[in-house]
Write a protein that binds this DNA or RNA. Structure first.
Lengths: 138, 138
DNA sequence: TATTGTTATACTCTATAACTATA
DNA sequence: TATAGTTATAGAGTATAACAATA
C-alpha cells in the first residue's frame, strides 16, 4: 500500500515548501513578482504574453505585476525591434542582485539543516531528490 | 559541498508543492480557507485568535476568512461557554467532507506517480520522507 | 481580421486603526 | 485596564471586458 507514503510525502513537501518560501531576501516582494524575476533570470528576456502563459495568470494581471517591477527598477520593458505589438521584459542588474540574494538565503536555510545530518542521510536525500524531480516533471 | 544538494532539493520541493497545491477538491476554495479547514479537521475546534496565530494572519483577516467559511456552511462559530469574549470555530460535516475529498485528490496525484516507481525507489523515498519531516520540524 | 498589449473596473485576501463586549 | 473579537477602510493581486496599436 503506497498510499500512506504518498500521504506522508505530500504533507512533508507542503510544509517544507511553506518554510522555504517564507525565506525571502526582501519581505516586501510578493511571490508573483519574485517568480517572474526568477523566471527572467533563469530563462532570459521574454514577452509579456510568454510570461503570463508561464505563470498561468492573465495578461492584464501580468501587466500589473510588470508595472510594479519596472517602478522598483527590477526589470526593463522595451518594444520588440521586429514586431511593434510586442514588448520585451528583462531583468535589471538590481533584479539580478535580488534574485541572487533570495536564492542564497533560501539555499542557506536548507544547507544549515543538511549540515547537521549524517553522510548516509545526505546520500539518501541525494537519491530521493533525483526521484522527486522526475515526479515533478511528469 | 552539500550546498548543491540544498539548492537542488529546494527547487524540487517548491516545484512539487506547486503541483500538489493545484490539486484541490473545489477550485473556488482559496489556500487560506482550505488551510483553516485542514487545521480544524486535524487539531479540533479553536478560537479565532488561536487560528490567526497558527496561520500567521491578523485577527481581522482571519475573521473575514471565517465569515466566508460560515456562509459556505463549512465551519460553525459559537460563543465560548466560560468566557463570553471568545468564540469557538469548528469544522462542519460539509467541511469535513471537503477536507476528505481534497486530501484524497492530492494523495491520488502522488500515489499514481509513486506506483510507477521501483520498490527500491519507493524505499528511498520512505527513508527520505522521515529525514525531510525532521528538517521541517526544526 | 487576428494578435499583442493596455486600460477600466470589480472581487478577494490581507493589513492597520478604531470600536464593542467581556473579564 | 486588558483581552477577544469585530467593523471600517485601504492596499495588493487577480480576473473579465473593452480598447488601441500593429501585423
Amino acid at each position: 500500500m503506497s498510499n500512506e507514503l504518498g500521504h506522508q510525502l505530500r504533507q512533508t513537501i507542503l510544509r517544507l515548501a511553506r518554510r522555504v518560501r517564507a525565506e525571502r531576501a526582501d519581505d516586501a516582494m510578493s511571490d508573483g513578482k519574485l517568480s517572474v524575476l526568477f523566471m527572467l533570470a533563469n530563462e532570459g528576456a521574454q514577452t509579456l504574453g510568454s510570461l503570463s502563459d508561464h505563470e498561468r495568470v492573465t495578461p492584464p494581471s501580468m501587466n500589473r505585476t510588470i508595472n510594479g517591477l519596472v517602478e522598483s527598477g527590477l526589470v526593463t520593458r522595451v518594444s520588440d525591434a521586429t514586431d511593434g505589438r510586442k514588448v520585451v521584459i528583462d531583468v535589471s542588474d538590481a533584479g539580478r542582485r535580488l534574485v541572487r540574494d533570495t536564492r542564497r538565503k533560501r539555499d542557506a536555510w536548507f544547507s544549515s539543516r543538511l549540515s547537521k545530518l549524517t553522510n548516509a542521510e545526505r546520500e539518501t536525500l541525494e537519491n530521493a531528490e533525483e526521484i522527486l524531480r522526475r515526479l515533478a516533471d511528469q
